[in-house]
């Protein structure tokens, strides 16, 4: 695994919150590598530290200790202003509650990250259009969030996350506010984006949602409990085939 392929490299990551006099260790030393074009689900019960990890991955929060390199850049050493630039250019973040600007149209919402990068308005508009087309909302560009369904809103949010062409797409419980049919649609969208080459990390507590990913990282009490590929992972499929044939040959050998 060469360093060029590494999207995220985390070593000894810790996060301690102070609740009054009490200290809460939300993350107690996490090591994690995520390659480019991986589709990873982070799972865990509430209080496991999965959201804390996600916020640090999204550079929305800073670790207490440890290192986090995003596309080779050491974010744990960056200033608030440098982190803002990383959030703008390297990360697309999808929130559980969408976080759209209520008075702005879908197009204006998707353009928002581009406002904060040095792009001209017209090219920003064209990029936002393309991004909305990519999530299948070409017909809803001038609608405001209250004129859109939940699934459409989350699609707008995903279009906004994709518009800067980020290194990683992070989604924190992206289907948490959606019904199961819409959830499946959104997950299909994620799979499609992944198939187009996008690196995706989602946080969820639902097994069937996590099942869409190719790798599941389980957290408990701020530590990684398990980290293994799912049935959908092509490498995993190879492994399963191998295991099956091995098992079959073993079985043959046993009967022989």
């Amino acid at each position: 695994m060469s360093s060029v392929d590494i999207a995220i490299r985390i070593r000894g990551l810790e996060k301690v919150y102070r609740m009054g006099t009490e200290k809460v260790r939300a993350l107690a030393g996490v090591d994690l590598d995520i390659r480019r074009n991986e589709f990873v689900a982070i799972m865990g019960s509430s209080g496991s530290g999965k959201s804390t990890l996600m916020n640090i991955l999204g550079c929305l929060d800073r670790p207490t200790a440890g290192s986090y390199e995003l596309a080779g850049k050491p974010t744990h050493r960056m200033s608030a202003s440098q982190l803002a630039r990383v959030r703008n250019q390297e990360i697309g973040f999808v929130f559980q509650s969408f976080e759209l600007l209520p008075r702005a149209t879908a197009l204006a919402n998707v353009m928002l990250p581009l406002i904060y990068s040095s792009r001209y308005w017209l090219s920003a508009r064209a990029m936002a259009r393309k991004s909305l087309e990519r999530v299948g909302l070409a017909q809803r560009m001038t609608h405001r969030p209250n004129q859109l369904s939940g699934g459409q809103r989350q699609r707008v949010a995903i279009a906004r996350a994709l518009v800067t062409n980020p290194s990683i797409l992070l989604a924190d419980e992206p289907t948490g506010n959606l019904d199961s049919k819409t959830s499946d649609d959104i997950m299909m969208l994620f799979k499609q984006l992944h198939a187009e080459g996008q690196t995706i990390v989602i946080v969820t507590h639902e097994e069937d949602i996590a099942g869409h990913a190719h790798r599941i990282v389980r957290l408990r009490d701020g530590r990684i409990l398990s980290d293994h590929p799912t049935a959908d992972d092509p490498t995993h499929q190879t492994y399963l085939r191998l295991a099956a044939s091995t098992a079959a040959s073993l079985a043959q050998g046993a009967t022989a």
Partner: peptide
């Protein structure tokens, strides 16, 4: 918060 999350400088 959202504006900061999508990369607005302080």
């Amino acid at each position: 918060g959202l504006r900061k999350a999508v990369g607005a400088q302080p």
